[in-house]
Design a binder for these strands. Structure first.
Lengths: 189, 189
DNA sequence: CCGAAATTGTACCGAACGGTACAATGAGTC
DNA sequence: GACTCATTGTACCGTTCGGTACAATTTCGG
């Protein structure tokens, strides 16, 4: 388990919210300061590298959450299908709990994409790889597992885009339900 | 068929490229001027409403292209499956031809989303609706058709995000191949 | 209670932003 | 050639941007 000072944890969560809501360019220091209650002095004390370091820290923070709650179950669960189920549930609760867009997905399309290209590529790459690994352990052929994993992750990202466009989070729920089916999980109770 | 003065058509294409590459906020008038070779005088002559009108015109322009090349085949083709095939081919060629991201999808996640919310919602809404219509005419049950249509459009959007993140357009090709399968089309030659 | 270090508010910087004003051109028409 | 009217370049506006400097304050171990 990751060890983070609780206040820094919360700070990063708040900053993440601003980036999520406004994108990298749109998240001005004024907005970040307003949301966190911190002035520029404090902000630059905690993040000497300025806005770029803030974004990088936020991405790392999110990446860590996914490592613990999404990738780890896929990798470590004895029953791979149970791990996949955990992944889907973590995904659902994560994107439902107010944070309605994948910040990393948004950054991937943003003007800032080159700044964070490595972190973004790794995030999605690990998601697909871990899911494919679980599918292989559940008995799928490797090539089939790769396709299904890529399809599932893309379906989630696409559903988030459509959900945002339509202001309708049910799009995500339906996508997750379909993924459950495509990945060979029993229909949910 | 839509009738557009060819030079305005080309101008909108160039401006679209800038928005696609940099997002709404990131596309500064300096960049737009540089890409089009037009100074602010000309830009504000053609788009008195400024940047917002430029973006709106670009979205309308793209929307028109999709109406002609994607939605129309879905609606008008005698053989619904042939229409779907046309849609997938138009989609493939559109996103492959240099324009590697869905501008409207990017705007949906951008800070500018509220400005263009209506246009964005309509674009995706019509895509799903027309595809679902074709599926119904191909013999699917309406609820099944809706699910499949939403899945297909989301898969394309998600694939574009992943393709951008991985700098690998093959992600899109694979997604389209899977869509072909899911939608009941014969595997491509 | 003291001193060092962490934290903060405020004033300020140059640059870039979107937008405006307007005079100078351009092209076509009588 | 003169009269339009569309088109363009340029200088300029106020605002906001990310970032810096630094003094004042708080915190806290000794």
């Amino acid at each position: 388990m990751r060890r983070i000072a609780p206040d820094r944890d919360q700070l990063l969560g708040t900053v993440a919210e601003v980036f999520r809501e406004h994108g990298y360019e749109g998240a001005s220091l004024a907005l970040i300061g307003g949301a966190t209650g911190l002035g520029k002095g404090s902000l630059y004390h905690f993040f000497p590298g300025g806005k770029e370091e803030m974004a990088r820290a936020v991405i790392t923070h999110i990446d860590g959450w996914f490592a613990d709650n999404v990738f780890a179950p896929l990798r470590d669960s004895g029953d791979p299908l149970a791990g996949i189920e955990q992944m889907l549930e973590a995904t659902d609760s994560y994107f439902r709990s107010g944070r309605r867009v994948c910040l990393i997905g948004a950054f991937a399309l943003d003007d800032s994409r080159d700044l964070f290209a490595g972190q973004i590529r790794d995030y999605f790459g690990r998601w697909v790889t871990h899911l494919a690994g679980a599918l292989v352990r559940s008995g799928r052929r490797p090539d089939e597992a790769s396709e299904l994993a890529e399809e599932a992750v893309a379906a989630i990202q696409g559903a988030l885009t459509l959900a945002r466009a339509a202001s309708d989070l049910d799009v995500l729920s339906r996508a997750l339900r379909r993924s459950r089916m495509r990945l060979g999980l029993p229909a949910k109770i």
